[in-house]
């Protein structure tokens, strides 16, 4: 399996997920939700984990953070954060690592901020806990952080409550909290989905700035290929709990290898086509529905929707392997280099 994922970067390996399998209890049975998920993330790199609902992308994030919901558990696999296996850590050790060496940005900035505490208090709290610094130092650092994420007049904002801020500002505060302890890894779970289009672009810019300045690795979890195109260096595509393709972002958009990735890209309405002359082209569709984890088909999960499916696809799960042209995908048909 490791051979399939060529180490392309010289940068230090920040996060290495290997063979991660997660299942959750449903009635009496264990339903597998993630199967054999593997990927690497280097310092200063943005890896996008792309998938639809039920693909397991958020579950992957939660598994890495050690925040799996009740009933879900890690069955197999390792999650190495700078050579420290997070899966084997106890809850108390995880609490130390969370917020310090890795942190998370959630989709909905309103519910993830405590409404009865001031922005300043929420920011300094983490600093005091993890860095053990004095209150005065902490609040000076908090102001600095707010400035770093582009919040105007940060001293004033420190005294305000979350409801006094707009959605975009709240997400900036979330980012400030996430980078407070200078983490090695930020997991951003749909950081722009709840925001307006014009605010989305601002948040993407903030994240890009942070990555450039602090060299933080970012695991970007999203369903939106536009966001991927905007900020990802590499992309891992998840479908129904399995990684189906891993590629450099440009290569993926140039020539997607897995039929699912291909379908996703061509189903995206694109402005540049629409503004062009000539009759409108019909959007390509991916037929069928996203399978629920409970009745995932045998073999490749994508075969019922796949235009290329063969008999083998229906029976056997394709492994994630690299082809001779250096592409990594899990597809029986596309095993041979194009």
């Amino acid at each position: 399996m490791d051979a399939a994922l060529p180490v392309s970067s010289d940068a230090a390996l920040t996060l290495s997920v290997r063979g991660l399998s997660v299942s959750f209890r449903d009635g009496g049975a264990q339903v597998p939700a993630l199967e054999d998920v593997s990927f690497d993330l280097h310092a200063g790199e943005v890896l996008a984990l792309v998938g639809e609902s039920g693909s397991g992308k958020s579950l992957t994030a939660l598994a890495i953070m050690g925040l799996l919901p009740g009933g879900a558990r890690v069955d197999r696999g390792t999650v190495l954060l700078e050579s420290c296996d997070l899966v084997s850590l106890g809850p108390r050790e995880m609490t130390c690592i969370r917020g310090d060496r890795m942190s998370m940005i959630f989709q909905e900035p309103m519910t993830s901020l405590n409404p009865v505490l001031t922005i300043g208090r929420q920011l300094t709290e983490g600093l005091e806990i993890h860095l053990g610094i004095a209150v005065a130092t902490a609040s000076a650092r908090a102001v600095e952080l707010l400035r770093l994420v582009g919040i105007p007049s940060p001293e004033r904002r420190m005294r305000e409550y979350p409801h006094q801020l707009s959605g975009g500002m709240r997400q900036r505060v979330m980012i400030a909290m996430a980078i407070a302890c200078d983490p090695k890894l930020i997991i951003a779970d749909e950081p722009t989905t709840a925001l307006d289009v014009s605010i989305q672009a601002q948040i993407i810019a903030v994240l890009a700035e942070i990555r450039a300045r602090l060299g933080t690795a970012i695991l970007l979890i999203t369903h939106d290929l536009g966001v991927v195109a905007e900020m990802a260096d590499r992309v891992a595509v998840l479908y129904s709990g399995r990684v189906v393709e891993v590629a450099e972002a440009e290569a993926l958009f140039d020539a997607p290898r897995h039929p699912y990735t291909q379908g996703l890209l061509s189903a995206m309405p694109r402005l540049d086509w629409l503004a062009a002359e000539g009759p409108r082209t019909r959007l390509a569709e991916i037929a069928g529905v996203v399978p629920s984890l409970r009745d995932r088909p045998d073999g490749c999960s994508f075969w019922p929707r796949c235009p290329l499916a063969t008999e083998q696809c229906r029976r056997e799960v394709p492994p994630l392997i690299s082809t001779s042209d250096g592409r990594v995908a899990a597809c029986w048909v596309r095993q041979v280099a194009a």
């Binding site: 989305q200 672009a201 993407i204 966001v227 905007e230 958009f253 402005l271």
Partner: peptide, 10 residues
Amino acid sequence: AVPVPHPRLR
């Protein structure tokens, strides 16, 4: 503000 359709256009 519409995201670019390809990383190369970033």
